[in-house]
Design a protein around this nucleic acid. Structure first.
Lengths: 137, 137
DNA sequence: GGGGGACGCTATGCGAGACATAGTATGCCG
DNA sequence: CGGCATACTATGTCTCGCATAGCGTCCCCC
């Protein structure tokens, strides 16, 4: 359920870094977690997530290792020290931007209400259309 | 005081549309209003704002008219009907994204506290550096 | 037993838009 | 009178989401 690409450019990477703050995760697991943990708002397909991970790794914000112990090989990603600092900075920026949007009257003082989140999610343009990038319908 | 370019991609246009929701404004006035109304968080220079306005007009979201009654000509912009609908949709998306970021623990339940906004603004990378695009120092 | 979807990943190119650089013009204040 | 503020236009660079295409194979169900 696609979020506007320009918003995803600002939100996607920091959301991924935040998920990796708690524990290392493999790619496909991140796809699932973004869907589950944000009620689909920040859902992204493999064609978005994997290049994003390569980019984050290229910048030294995450590091990866292969785990071939299961039936399928999995590439696990973890936050680096640089990544943790970047996450802190991005988190501050996101709070600043959210504050600014509130000042303008775009974002309200919204409680962390999943029902409300779903309400807004349904308002997203093209809601219900399944993109052809591997996202679940 | 530059906000990350990727965040501005998502925040800039909707902020401009929101400012035009109340009344028409001319370009330079929008530059000033973005600085004042968001404590500098969404401040942008003329080289960012004008192309953004041309893009919004190209999409039919705003319309412009010249006013030569003063000592300098001013190009006033107003929201179109299409622009109003787009603003409503973008506002919903921003609330959805903010809710998602809150679910992940990136954005907190922040009161509209200008002092807090300033605190976050100071946390923005490169705070204090004056860009060479006409933004005030 | 085999087919198809899920699982897990890689490669590459296109398009959108922030913003830097460069420019023009001139009003106005010290 | 000079410099900064005011007000705008033009163009090119850079970044990154994501589409398209692909490989490999596990596993479930008909």
């Amino acid at each position: 359920m696609p979020l506007d690409r320009e918003l995803m450019r600002g939100a996607g990477p920091v959301a991924v870094l935040k998920l990796l703050e708690r524990r290392e995760m493999y790619g496909y697991e991140l796809v699932e977690a973004l869907e589950q943990r944000t009620d689909g708002v920040l859902a992204m397909g493999q064609s978005t997530l994997y290049p994003m991970l390569y980019n984050l790794e290229g910048k030294g914000l995450v590091a990866s290792r292969w785990d071939d112990s299961g039936p399928r090989g999995r590439k696990y990603y973890r936050l680096t020290g640089t990544g943790k600092r970047r996450l802190a900075a991005d988190t501050a920026q996101w709070n600043a931007v959210t504050g600014a949007m509130r000042q303008l009257g775009i974002v309200g003082r919204l409680a962390a209400d999943p029902a409300r989140a779903l309400e807004y999610r349904l308002a997203i343009p093209t809601a219900g259309l399944a993109p052809s990038n591997g996202l679940r319908p």
